[in-house]
Protein backbone atom coordinates (compact mmCIF):
# COMPACT_ATOMS: atom_id res chain seq x y z
CA UNK A 1 0.00 0.00 0.00
CA UNK A 2 1.25 3.43 -0.91
CA UNK A 3 0.64 6.55 1.06
CA UNK A 4 0.26 10.04 -0.33
CA UNK A 5 0.99 11.76 -2.61
CA UNK A 6 -1.26 10.01 -5.08
CA UNK A 7 -0.61 12.60 -7.75
CA UNK A 8 2.59 12.49 -9.78
CA UNK A 9 4.16 15.03 -12.04
CA UNK A 10 3.45 13.95 -15.61
CA UNK A 11 6.08 12.91 -18.16
CA UNK A 12 8.65 12.70 -15.43
CA UNK A 13 10.97 9.73 -15.14
CA UNK A 14 14.63 8.84 -15.17
CA UNK A 15 14.13 7.78 -18.78
CA UNK A 16 12.73 11.20 -19.64
CA UNK A 17 15.69 12.92 -17.96
CA UNK A 18 18.17 10.76 -19.82
CA UNK A 19 16.31 11.26 -23.12
CA UNK A 20 16.56 15.02 -22.67
CA UNK A 21 20.29 14.74 -22.06
CA UNK A 22 20.70 12.61 -25.17
CA UNK A 23 18.66 15.06 -27.23
CA UNK A 24 20.79 17.95 -25.99
CA UNK A 25 23.91 16.14 -27.21
CA UNK A 26 22.65 15.92 -30.79
CA UNK A 27 23.78 19.40 -31.99
CA UNK A 28 27.28 18.70 -30.73
CA UNK A 29 27.42 15.28 -32.39
CA UNK A 30 26.26 16.68 -35.71
CA UNK A 31 28.84 19.47 -35.50
CA UNK A 32 31.48 16.86 -34.73
CA UNK A 33 30.54 14.84 -37.80
CA UNK A 34 30.50 18.05 -39.85
CA UNK A 35 33.96 19.18 -38.87
CA UNK A 36 35.79 15.90 -38.27
CA UNK A 37 34.07 13.50 -40.62
CA UNK A 38 31.67 10.61 -40.03
CA UNK A 39 34.07 8.71 -37.74
CA UNK A 40 32.12 9.89 -34.70
CA UNK A 41 29.13 7.78 -35.77
CA UNK A 42 31.24 4.65 -35.60
CA UNK A 43 32.62 5.30 -32.12
CA UNK A 44 29.21 6.42 -30.90
CA UNK A 45 27.57 3.30 -32.26
CA UNK A 46 30.24 1.05 -30.76
CA UNK A 47 30.08 2.68 -27.32
CA UNK A 48 26.30 2.58 -27.23
CA UNK A 49 26.15 -1.05 -28.29
CA UNK A 50 28.88 -2.05 -25.86
CA UNK A 51 27.22 0.03 -23.16
CA UNK A 52 23.83 -1.62 -23.63
CA UNK A 53 25.29 -5.11 -23.75
CA UNK A 54 27.49 -4.58 -20.70
CA UNK A 55 24.64 -3.01 -18.77
CA UNK A 56 22.44 -6.00 -19.53
CA UNK A 57 25.23 -8.39 -18.61
CA UNK A 58 25.91 -6.65 -15.31
CA UNK A 59 22.20 -6.57 -14.46
CA UNK A 60 21.97 -10.29 -15.15
CA UNK A 61 25.02 -10.96 -13.00
CA UNK A 62 23.55 -8.90 -10.20
CA UNK A 63 20.19 -10.62 -10.49
CA UNK A 64 18.31 -7.44 -11.29
CA UNK A 65 15.40 -7.13 -13.72
CA UNK A 66 16.50 -5.98 -17.18
CA UNK A 67 13.57 -4.00 -18.46
CA UNK A 68 13.24 -1.12 -15.99
CA UNK A 69 16.96 -0.60 -15.67
CA UNK A 70 17.81 -0.93 -19.36
CA UNK A 71 15.02 1.43 -20.29
CA UNK A 72 16.19 4.08 -17.85
CA UNK A 73 18.77 5.07 -20.47
CA UNK A 74 21.53 5.92 -18.04
CA UNK A 75 23.96 3.46 -19.62
CA UNK A 76 23.32 4.98 -23.02
CA UNK A 77 24.08 8.46 -21.77
CA UNK A 78 27.29 7.22 -20.18
CA UNK A 79 28.27 5.45 -23.40
CA UNK A 80 27.47 8.49 -25.53
CA UNK A 81 29.50 10.81 -23.31
CA UNK A 82 32.36 8.35 -23.43
CA UNK A 83 32.22 8.23 -27.22
CA UNK A 84 32.30 12.03 -27.37
CA UNK A 85 35.22 12.23 -24.96
CA UNK A 86 37.36 9.55 -26.61
CA UNK A 87 39.24 10.05 -29.90
CA UNK A 88 37.36 8.84 -32.94
CA UNK A 89 38.87 6.25 -35.30
CA UNK A 90 40.60 4.38 -32.47
CA UNK A 91 40.61 0.56 -32.52
CA UNK A 92 37.26 -1.03 -31.59
CA UNK A 93 38.62 -2.72 -28.50
CA UNK A 94 39.56 0.63 -27.01
CA UNK A 95 35.85 1.53 -26.97
CA UNK A 96 35.04 -1.86 -25.50
CA UNK A 97 37.62 -1.45 -22.75
CA UNK A 98 36.53 2.08 -21.98
CA UNK A 99 32.87 1.08 -21.78
CA UNK A 100 33.81 -1.90 -19.63
CA UNK A 101 35.51 0.38 -17.14
CA UNK A 102 32.71 2.91 -17.28
CA UNK A 103 29.63 0.71 -17.08
CA UNK A 104 31.08 -2.45 -15.61
CA UNK A 105 33.47 -1.09 -13.02
CA UNK A 106 32.61 2.50 -12.19
CA UNK A 107 28.86 2.03 -12.31
CA UNK A 108 27.90 -1.51 -11.42
CA UNK A 109 30.71 -2.52 -9.12
CA UNK A 110 29.81 0.54 -7.08
CA UNK A 111 26.17 -0.55 -6.84
CA UNK A 112 24.63 0.54 -10.11
CA UNK A 113 22.43 3.47 -11.00
CA UNK A 114 22.64 6.22 -8.44
CA UNK A 115 25.28 4.59 -6.24
CA UNK A 116 28.52 5.34 -8.05
CA UNK A 117 30.96 7.72 -6.46
CA UNK A 118 32.85 8.43 -9.69
CA UNK A 119 31.54 9.61 -13.00
CA UNK A 120 31.47 6.39 -15.08
CA UNK A 121 32.37 7.99 -18.40
CA UNK A 122 35.35 9.72 -16.85
CA UNK A 123 36.55 6.51 -15.20
CA UNK A 124 36.44 4.84 -18.62
CA UNK A 125 38.32 7.75 -20.15
CA UNK A 126 40.94 7.86 -17.38
CA UNK A 127 41.53 4.12 -17.61
CA UNK A 128 42.23 4.46 -21.32
CA UNK A 129 44.52 7.44 -20.98
CA UNK A 130 46.58 5.56 -18.40
CA UNK A 131 46.43 2.19 -20.13
CA UNK A 132 46.71 3.16 -23.78
CA UNK A 133 48.24 6.64 -23.92
CA UNK A 134 49.33 6.35 -27.52
CA UNK A 135 45.85 5.83 -28.90
CA UNK A 136 44.63 8.68 -26.74
CA UNK A 137 46.84 11.13 -28.55
CA UNK A 138 45.67 10.20 -32.04
CA UNK A 139 42.71 12.46 -32.70
CA UNK A 140 40.96 12.71 -36.01
CA UNK A 141 42.19 15.82 -37.70
CA UNK A 142 39.58 18.37 -38.79
CA UNK A 143 38.43 18.31 -42.40
CA UNK A 144 40.61 20.62 -44.39
CA UNK A 145 43.65 19.89 -42.27
CA UNK A 146 43.77 16.14 -42.63
CA UNK A 147 45.34 14.65 -45.72
CA UNK A 148 42.57 12.17 -45.70
CA UNK A 149 39.17 12.11 -44.00
CA UNK A 150 37.71 8.61 -43.99
CA UNK A 151 34.17 8.08 -45.15
CA UNK A 152 31.76 6.12 -42.98
CA UNK A 153 32.77 2.81 -44.58
CA UNK A 154 36.45 3.68 -44.33
CA UNK A 155 35.95 4.67 -40.71
CA UNK A 156 34.50 1.21 -39.97
CA UNK A 157 37.54 -0.33 -41.68
CA UNK A 158 39.95 1.77 -39.67
CA UNK A 159 38.25 0.96 -36.39
CA UNK A 160 37.91 -2.76 -36.94
CA UNK A 161 40.85 -3.64 -39.21
CA UNK A 162 43.36 -0.99 -38.25
CA UNK A 163 45.10 1.54 -40.39
CA UNK A 164 46.82 -1.07 -42.57
CA UNK A 165 48.70 0.62 -45.40
CA UNK A 166 47.47 4.08 -44.50
CA UNK A 167 49.68 6.05 -42.19
CA UNK A 168 47.95 7.03 -38.96
CA UNK A 169 49.35 10.51 -39.41
CA UNK A 170 47.35 10.86 -42.60
CA UNK A 171 44.07 11.25 -40.75
CA UNK A 172 45.02 12.09 -37.17
CA UNK A 173 46.83 14.91 -35.52
CA UNK A 174 47.73 16.10 -32.07
CA UNK A 175 45.01 18.13 -30.42
CA UNK A 176 45.57 21.88 -30.33
CA UNK A 177 45.85 21.64 -26.55
CA UNK A 178 48.63 19.12 -26.95
CA UNK A 179 50.28 21.16 -29.67
CA UNK A 180 50.21 24.32 -27.59
CA UNK A 181 51.68 22.54 -24.62
CA UNK A 182 54.63 21.00 -26.45
CA UNK A 183 55.38 23.99 -28.61
CA UNK A 184 55.08 26.55 -25.82
CA UNK A 185 57.44 24.48 -23.72
CA UNK A 186 59.84 24.44 -26.61
CA UNK A 187 59.80 28.23 -26.51
CA UNK A 188 57.58 28.97 -29.46
CA UNK A 189 55.70 32.25 -29.22
CA UNK A 190 51.96 32.03 -28.60
CA UNK A 191 51.11 34.07 -31.67
CA UNK A 192 53.12 31.71 -33.85
CA UNK A 193 51.47 28.66 -32.41
CA UNK A 194 47.95 29.91 -32.93
CA UNK A 195 48.34 30.50 -36.64
CA UNK A 196 48.88 26.83 -37.40
CA UNK A 197 46.06 25.14 -39.33
CA UNK A 198 44.74 23.06 -36.45
CA UNK A 199 43.93 26.24 -34.53
CA UNK A 200 40.76 28.13 -35.33
CA UNK A 201 39.40 31.62 -34.84
CA UNK A 202 39.31 31.32 -31.07
CA UNK A 203 40.22 27.84 -30.05
CA UNK A 204 40.82 24.60 -31.82
CA UNK A 205 39.68 24.37 -35.40
CA UNK A 206 36.39 22.48 -35.57
CA UNK A 207 36.36 21.88 -31.85
CA UNK A 208 35.34 25.44 -31.18
CA UNK A 209 32.15 24.98 -33.19
CA UNK A 210 31.47 21.63 -31.53
CA UNK A 211 31.98 23.33 -28.17
CA UNK A 212 29.47 26.03 -29.10
CA UNK A 213 26.98 23.32 -30.05
CA UNK A 214 27.51 21.68 -26.65
CA UNK A 215 26.87 25.09 -25.15
CA UNK A 216 23.63 25.27 -27.11
CA UNK A 217 22.62 21.79 -25.88
CA UNK A 218 23.53 22.78 -22.35
CA UNK A 219 21.34 25.86 -22.56
CA UNK A 220 18.49 23.61 -23.71
CA UNK A 221 19.02 21.46 -20.60
CA UNK A 222 18.97 24.57 -18.46
CA UNK A 223 15.77 25.77 -20.10
CA UNK A 224 14.22 22.36 -19.49
CA UNK A 225 15.34 22.41 -15.87
CA UNK A 226 17.24 19.17 -16.27
CA UNK A 227 20.27 20.90 -14.79
CA UNK A 228 20.69 24.09 -12.78
CA UNK A 229 23.01 26.95 -13.64
CA UNK A 230 25.27 26.39 -10.64
CA UNK A 231 27.69 23.83 -12.00
CA UNK A 232 28.19 24.89 -15.65
CA UNK A 233 28.49 28.59 -14.89
CA UNK A 234 30.87 28.10 -11.99
CA UNK A 235 32.90 25.50 -13.81
CA UNK A 236 33.42 27.73 -16.84
CA UNK A 237 34.03 30.77 -14.68
CA UNK A 238 36.63 28.97 -12.59
CA UNK A 239 38.34 27.74 -15.75
CA UNK A 240 38.30 31.15 -17.36
CA UNK A 241 39.55 32.84 -14.21
CA UNK A 242 42.40 30.38 -13.71
CA UNK A 243 43.33 30.48 -17.40
CA UNK A 244 43.13 34.27 -17.41
CA UNK A 245 45.41 34.64 -14.42
CA UNK A 246 47.90 32.21 -15.89
CA UNK A 247 47.76 33.95 -19.25
CA UNK A 248 48.30 37.34 -17.62
CA UNK A 249 51.19 36.01 -15.61
CA UNK A 250 52.90 34.36 -18.54
CA UNK A 251 51.28 34.85 -21.98
CA UNK A 252 54.07 32.97 -23.70
CA UNK A 253 53.49 29.81 -21.73
CA UNK A 254 49.72 29.89 -21.21
CA UNK A 255 47.01 30.24 -23.84
CA UNK A 256 44.22 32.83 -23.47
CA UNK A 257 41.04 31.82 -21.59
CA UNK A 258 38.75 31.75 -24.61
CA UNK A 259 41.03 29.22 -26.28
CA UNK A 260 40.73 26.99 -23.23
CA UNK A 261 36.96 27.33 -23.00
CA UNK A 262 36.49 26.37 -26.63
CA UNK A 263 38.92 23.49 -26.94
CA UNK A 264 39.13 20.00 -25.64
CA UNK A 265 36.39 18.75 -23.35
CA UNK A 266 35.63 21.99 -21.54
CA UNK A 267 32.08 22.63 -22.78
CA UNK A 268 31.09 18.98 -22.81
CA UNK A 269 32.34 18.73 -19.25
CA UNK A 270 30.66 21.91 -18.06
CA UNK A 271 27.17 20.97 -19.20
CA UNK A 272 27.10 17.20 -19.49
CA UNK A 273 29.78 15.60 -17.36
CA UNK A 274 30.25 17.78 -14.31
CA UNK A 275 26.47 18.05 -14.01
CA UNK A 276 25.97 14.29 -13.62
CA UNK A 277 23.73 14.45 -10.54
CA UNK A 278 24.87 11.13 -9.12
CA UNK A 279 28.50 12.14 -8.78
CA UNK A 280 28.22 15.91 -8.38
CA UNK A 281 27.60 17.80 -5.18
CA UNK A 282 23.92 18.26 -4.49
CA UNK A 283 23.51 21.33 -2.30
CA UNK A 284 23.43 24.75 -4.00
CA UNK A 285 26.57 25.96 -2.25
CA UNK A 286 28.18 22.55 -2.65
CA UNK A 287 27.61 22.69 -6.39
CA UNK A 288 29.48 25.98 -6.57
CA UNK A 289 32.42 24.62 -4.60
CA UNK A 290 32.47 21.37 -6.53
CA UNK A 291 32.34 23.06 -9.93
CA UNK A 292 34.92 25.67 -8.99
CA UNK A 293 37.23 22.92 -7.78
CA UNK A 294 36.75 20.91 -10.97
CA UNK A 295 37.27 23.94 -13.21
CA UNK A 296 40.37 24.98 -11.33
CA UNK A 297 41.85 21.48 -11.37
CA UNK A 298 41.09 21.18 -15.05
CA UNK A 299 43.12 24.28 -15.84
CA UNK A 300 45.94 23.30 -13.49
CA UNK A 301 46.23 19.94 -15.23
CA UNK A 302 46.13 21.58 -18.65
CA UNK A 303 48.76 24.11 -17.66
CA UNK A 304 51.17 22.04 -15.61
CA UNK A 305 50.13 18.39 -15.82
CA UNK A 306 51.39 15.59 -17.99
CA UNK A 307 48.16 15.34 -19.97
CA UNK A 308 47.05 17.89 -22.54
CA UNK A 309 43.44 17.87 -21.32
CA UNK A 310 42.36 17.52 -17.72
CA UNK A 311 38.65 16.68 -17.90
CA UNK A 312 38.77 13.17 -16.52
CA UNK A 313 41.14 13.73 -13.63
CA UNK A 314 39.61 17.05 -12.65
CA UNK A 315 36.17 15.49 -12.45
CA UNK A 316 37.34 12.36 -10.65
CA UNK A 317 39.26 14.39 -8.08
CA UNK A 318 36.26 16.62 -7.52
CA UNK A 319 34.05 13.51 -7.23
CA UNK A 320 36.19 12.34 -4.31
CA UNK A 321 35.42 15.55 -2.45
CA UNK A 322 31.66 15.42 -2.99
CA UNK A 323 30.57 13.64 0.21
CA UNK A 324 32.69 16.02 2.21
CA UNK A 325 31.44 19.09 0.36
CA UNK A 326 27.81 18.01 0.74
CA UNK A 327 28.17 17.32 4.43
CA UNK A 328 29.46 20.80 5.14
CA UNK A 329 27.20 22.80 2.84
CA UNK A 330 23.77 21.63 3.99
CA UNK A 331 21.36 24.51 3.43
CA UNK A 332 19.53 26.10 6.32
CA UNK A 333 16.21 24.39 6.96
CA UNK A 334 13.03 26.45 7.16
CA UNK A 335 12.51 27.58 10.73
CA UNK A 336 16.11 26.96 11.82
CA UNK A 337 18.38 29.70 13.03
CA UNK A 338 20.87 31.04 10.57
CA UNK A 339 24.32 29.53 11.05
CA UNK A 340 22.90 26.74 13.19
CA UNK A 341 24.64 23.38 13.18
CA UNK A 342 23.01 20.60 11.27
CA UNK A 343 23.20 17.50 9.18
CA UNK A 344 26.82 16.53 9.26
CA UNK A 345 27.06 13.15 7.68
Amino acid sequence: MNGSPFALLGHNSVTAVMAKVMAALIPGIIAHAWFFGPGIWVSLLLCVVFGAVLEALMLLLRGLPLKPFLSDGSALVTAALLALALPTLAPWWLYLMATLFAVGVAKHLYGGLGQNLFNPAMVGYAAMIIGFPVYMTQWAAPIGVAHFTPSLAEAFDLVFAGAGAISVDAYTSATPLDAWKTQARQGMAGADILVQPIFGWAGARGQEMVALMYLLGGLLLLANRVITWHIPVTFLAAMALTAGLLHLANPAQHAPPLFHLLSGGAMLCAFFIATDPVTAASTPLGKLIYAALAGFLMMIIRAFGAYPDGVAFAILLANICVPFIDAYTQPRVFGHKRGGKRGQA
Partner: peptide
Protein backbone atom coordinates in the same frame (compact mmCIF):
# COMPACT_ATOMS: atom_id res chain seq x y z
CA UNK B 1 -2.55 5.48 -12.18
CA UNK B 2 -0.60 3.13 -9.94
CA UNK B 3 2.75 4.60 -8.96
CA UNK B 4 5.40 3.12 -11.28
CA UNK B 5 7.98 0.86 -9.68
CA UNK B 6 10.65 2.94 -8.00
CA UNK B 7 14.11 3.22 -9.53
CA UNK B 8 17.18 4.06 -7.48
CA UNK B 9 17.69 7.67 -6.45
CA UNK B 10 19.95 9.52 -8.90
CA UNK B 11 20.47 12.45 -6.50
CA UNK B 12 19.08 14.82 -9.10
CA UNK B 13 17.97 17.14 -6.31
CA UNK B 14 14.52 17.78 -7.76
CA UNK B 15 13.05 16.89 -4.35
CA UNK B 16 15.27 19.41 -2.58
CA UNK B 17 14.25 22.13 -5.01
CA UNK B 18 10.56 21.29 -4.49
CA UNK B 19 10.76 21.06 -0.68
CA UNK B 20 8.98 23.99 1.01
CA UNK B 21 10.87 23.26 4.24
CA UNK B 22 14.27 23.53 2.51
CA UNK B 23 15.14 19.96 3.42
CA UNK B 24 17.28 17.51 1.47
CA UNK B 25 14.72 14.73 1.02
CA UNK B 26 17.08 12.44 -0.88
CA UNK B 27 19.48 12.39 2.07
Amino acid sequence: PARPAALPCIRCGACARACPADLQPFE
